[in-house]
């Protein structure tokens, strides 16, 4: 390491560098050139995707899906499968959205939802993180509450709505209770899974570099859990994304009248895409799947998590929460270990 003295000059001529080396191979030019060639042949071609490609690959499919749903929706309306107070037409719903925008109430609605979601998420994070760390690192705690946490995670958080309403009434604390009961176990479990699943190779590599004890926790385990900007963003997006639905679930119950009735609230009972895609603001979705922080898992897997289609999230969650359904995600293993 001592013999290269090129300092910070990055544009050092490769061939010169090679021949300047003490006792270099007879054909240093060859080696450098050879290597450059190999690198060029081998390396993964990473090029910026063109705008057109992005449109075709990323934008077109969801747009098609939305259009399809709108078409089916409109067809159902025309076929009059349900009275229009149950199934309003897309244009009526759009009118409603537009009206509340013009009245200046739409952003307010959205902000109430988002702020609640964010608050709930932050509180859940504040509780779930230490809890998860405790379960992951202390054997006794894991044996004691690990199975309960896993069990709670398998329970859709909507299941908490009736008891929460009974105990706390229809108010903010009830909604936070439901959010937390759904999110805290998921965040804790996600953390446990993330800590459990760290490949031993990374730990060995870290240890040889001198990352032991706290430094290991910080530079290897925590760094991997946060998983880079994509996963971090996913964690933030995916979780509050679903949180807001509780508000509308509650609101639609205690805010009767044509305005509420005209919206597709009723479609809350339709699972998956058709229920929420027609509404561009996705105000009225009912996505219990999202109440579980898919993001926490996404982060643990170093994978972006905030996918717009809840079907996918639901599928993932079903896979994740059913240990007997074998899936490539590793968290089941930890759940099995917990149970």
């Amino acid at each position: 390491m001592a013999s290269t003295d090129h300092g910070t000059d990055l544009e050092v001529d490769v061939t010169k560098n090679g021949s300047a080396a003490a006792g270099a191979p007879p054909d240093p030019n060859d080696l450098a050139g050879l290597e450059a060639g190999l690198d060029a042949l081998d390396s993964v071609q990473v090029r910026r995707t063109s705008l057109r490609e992005t449109l075709v690959r990323k934008v077109l499919p969801p747009v098609t899906a939305i259009a399809l749903v709108l078409v089916v929706w409109q067809l159902l309306v025309w076929a009059e499968v349900a009275p229009d107070y149950k199934l309003p037409s897309p244009s009526e719903v759009w009118g409603e959205v537009r009206e509340s925008w013009l009245q200046g109430t739409l952003l307010d609605y959205i902000w109430t939802s988002v702020s609640r979601g964010l608050m709930g998420f932050l509180i859940a994070l504040a509780i779930g993180t230490p809890l998860g760390l405790l379960v992951a690192r202390v054997k006794f705690v894991r044996a004691a509450i690990g199975p309960i946490l896993s069990g709670l995670q398998s329970l859709p958080s909507v299941a908490w709505v009736p008891p929460a309403v009974l105990w706390l009434g229809l108010n903010d604390s009830m909604m936070y209770a439901v959010i937390l009961l759904g999110a805290v176990p998921s965040i804790a479990n996600g953390l446990v899974a993330g800590i459990d699943q760290i490949p031993p190779l990374f730990l060995r590599a870290g240890r040889t570099l001198g990352a032991t004890g706290l430094r290991e926790a910080r530079h290897i385990r925590a760094a991997r859990l946060s998983g880079g900007p994509e996963a971090g963003l996913g964690l933030l997006l995916a979780v509050p994304d679903g949180r807001r639905d509780h508000r509308h679930l509650a609101r639609s119950r205690h805010r009767p009248g044509p305005a509420a009735g005209a919206g597709p609230h009723q479609q809350q009972h339709v699972p998956g895409v058709p229920g929420h895609l027609p509404d561009p603001h996705r105000r009225h979705r009912h996505r219990p799947a999202d109440l579980q922080p898919a993001g926490a898992e996404g982060a643990a897997q170093s994978r972006p998590a905030g996918h717009p289609l809840s079907v996918w999230v639901t599928l993932r969650r079903v896979m994740r929460t059913s240990p007997w359904l074998s899936s490539p995600h590793g968290s089941e293993l930890s759940q099995l270990a917990c149970v």
């Binding site: 390491m1 290269t4 090129h6 300092g7 910070t8 990055l10 544009e11 050092v12 490769v14 560098n17 090679g18 450098a32 290597e35 450059a36 190999l38 690198d39 081998d42 390396s43 993964v44 990473v46």
Partner: peptide, 25 residues
């Protein structure tokens, strides 16, 4: 870090993610 990358003749690889590199790199 840049000096070391240069030593292994990968001067352009500083900002590359691991998955963007070939096995040899």
């Amino acid at each position: 870090a840049e000096r070391l990358l240069e030593l292994v003749r990968l001067q352009g690889a500083y900002g590359k993610r691991v998955h963007e590199l070939s096995g040899g790199m």
